[in-house]
């Protein structure tokens, strides 16, 4: 019994690392999604082209290839990254590419009258986005963002393959030391499930909070 405390400690350490990568990855993904999503609908073809290239590249190659590329190849090109940096970078940019399409779709689905209203009020393009379009579009983005965040959480397990001591990595350590597979792996499966439940519930709460006073039909 005494020894299990130590092993549970190991797995909890891993749980903290997983949470950290998930949060940092989501932050990067959010920034990337908005940058590329707005880039896709920019008036300048150079920006549109750049954003499309980014999105297609990151959606087209697999997250694992991106992660291994970031970890093994970037250092050789003179960009040394720690496993944590490589993991956050690859996951954030990958999920950001999926998110960009969500941002674009949500902005385009804001009804035309809203844009016409902005024109009538003589808003600049920035004002239009900031005060009228984004507050409405953001609510539409949330459900898919929630799914993307869960995909990112699931993706973090892969960083264990580049020697980052996340939950999956620690479960392997426990397995190697105790010879028991079922206990550590079932534990982390339930922890991952708890994490994704937390993510989806907080997104739902946020959605309720933000859609207050908005005339946005859900769906």
């Amino acid at each position: 019994m005494e020894q299990w405390y130590g092993y549970i400690g190991l797995i909890l350490d891993g749980a903290v690392v997983t949470a950290k990568i998930t949060v940092l990855g989501c932050a990067l993904a959010l920034v990337a999604a908005f940058t590329a999503g707005l880039g896709r609908i920019s008036r300048f073809w150079q920006l549109r082209w750049l954003a499309t290239a980014y999105i297609e590249f990151f959606r087209g190659t697999s997250i694992f290839v991106q992660l291994f590329w970031a970890y093994f190849v970037l250092p050789l090109l003179g960009v040394p990254l720690s496993p944590l940096q490589a993991g956050v970078l690859a996951l954030g940019l990958n999920v950001g590419a999926y998110g960009a399409e969500v941002v674009r779709g949500a902005i385009l689905s804001v009804p035309r009258e809203q844009y016409e209203g902005c024109k009538a009020l003589n808003f600049t393009r920035i004002q239009e986005l900031r005060h009228v379009i984004l507050p409405q579009a953001f609510v539409l983005m949330l459900p898919t963002f929630g799914n993307n965040a869960i995909e990112l959480l699931k993706g973090t397990a892969v960083v264990s393959l580049i020697s980052l001591s996340d939950m999956t990595f620690q479960a392997q350590v426990v397995r190697a030391q105790t010879g028991s597979t079922a206990v550590p792996f079932l534990t982390i499966l339930f922890l991952y499930f708890a994490y994704s439940t937390v993510i989806s519930n907080s997104i739902k709460a946020l959605e309720r909070r933000l859609s207050r006073g908005l005339d946005v039909t859900k769906g």
Binding site: I150, L153, K154, G155, T156, A157, V158, S160, L161, T168, A171, Q172, T181, F185, L186, I188, L189, Y192, F193, S196, T197
Partner: peptide, 11 residues
């Protein structure tokens, strides 16, 4: 759907 494929594969 809420847990990583990698962990499921190990399992």
């Amino acid at each position: 759907r809420g847990t990583p494929l990698l962990v499921q594969l190990y399992f």
